[in-house]
């Protein structure tokens, strides 16, 4: 059992819209950080909610640490820490009161650790949560998720809207977390630079389908974007690239292996590809 999470052919359709998750499958190896990337409305949050059983899935299997996830399997959720993008605690509570609530719910709740995080982040323990700034509520949510000996953290756009200083603090925490090989993280984010810093794997989702699943290092060091004129583009074989699109008079082409491509076409300019560049290239199909 080397995976923290295995998702197999997850399907979920919404009755009122055309949107549906189609056969979403991916795994999270233990000890890794997996980034989840996609346009707004691509299905990131739906996938996460379906995996956590907040939304009922239509079909497919979800297993955490090898055990199937159902509403009754509540003991599994002792090992899962979740952070959503909006504050998910009642605003009337103070962190101290929250601590007492959590103590009664989580089996492995570590109150001392939680209070230590509060101190580390300068979060006032006796003020009502509704008075907190966004950064403070996020830090509170993450502190809570880290204080019950969770082995898998799931973050849904948790760093959105945070200033770079706070984001770096949080990323450092996440890296600390996976220093223990038993711990893993799944994080969906629009902030590609965060993922480029900490993720081991990146999964791209669009329109309810997984379109690419790759190691981050491969994406950064091997993938590339070649820019060329139409005449050069016409000389390419379809197998040489993943997708292409027009940018003014130029054509941009996404390639899997920069070195190979440059050997075959030494005159064409190729650049490194960032996640921000790869995503639109995978999601907007140019007629080839």
């Amino acid at each position: 059992m080397d995976f923290a999470l295995e998702v197999n052919k997850l399907c979920k359709a919404y009755k009122d819209t055309a949107f549906k998750l189609q056969n979403v499958s991916f795994n999270i190896p233990k000890g890794s950080i997996v980034g989840f990337v996609g346009k707004n409305g691509a299905g990131k949050s739906t996938t996460i909610n379906a995996v956590l059983n907040i939304l009922h899935k239509d079909s497919g299997e979800v297993a955490f640490f090898g055990k199937a996830m159902t509403d009754d399997a509540k003991y599994i959720r002792n090992d899962i820490g979740v952070v959503f993008d909006t504050v998910h605690f009642s605003g009337e509570l103070t962190p101290k009161k929250l601590e007492r609530v959590m103590k009664d719910i989580y089996e492995n709740w570590d109150g001392a650790l939680f209070l230590a995080y509060l101190e580390r982040f300068h979060i006032p323990a006796d003020k009502k949560i509704k008075t907190f700034s966004r950064g403070m509520t996020m830090k509170l949510s993450i502190s809570s998720a880290l204080s019950h000996k969770a082995k898998l953290l799931i973050l849904d756009e948790a760093t959105a809207g945070l200033d770079p200083v706070v984001r770096e603090e949080i990323l450092d925490l996440l890296l600390e977390f996976v220093e223990n090989e038993e711990n893993s993280i799944l994080m969906s984010s629009h902030i590609s630079s965060d993922l480029e810093k900490v993720a081991d794997y990146i999964i791209f989702i669009d329109n309810g389908k997984i379109i690419l699943s790759e190691k981050k290092d491969t994406l950064i060091y091997e993938y590339g974007i070649a820019r060329m004129k139409q005449s050069d583009f016409d000389t390419l074989d379809k197998s040489e690239y993943l997708s292409a699109r027009k940018r003014g008079l130029q054509l941009e082409v996404l390639i899997e292996n920069k070195k190979q491509f440059t050997r075959a076409h030494p005159d064409i300019v190729t650049d490194n590809a960032t996640i921000d560049e790869i995503l639109p290239m995978l999601t907007k199909e140019e007629s080839k």
Binding site: R77, F89, S90
Partner: peptide
């Protein structure tokens, strides 16, 4: 009402409790 406003009702499902709880 307060639960609904803070999305606590969504979050509580991620904790080791079941819907019947």
């Amino acid at each position: 009402q307060k639960d609904g406003a803070s999305k606590w009702s969504r979050f509580e499902l991620t904790m080791p409790i079941s819907r019947s709880d």
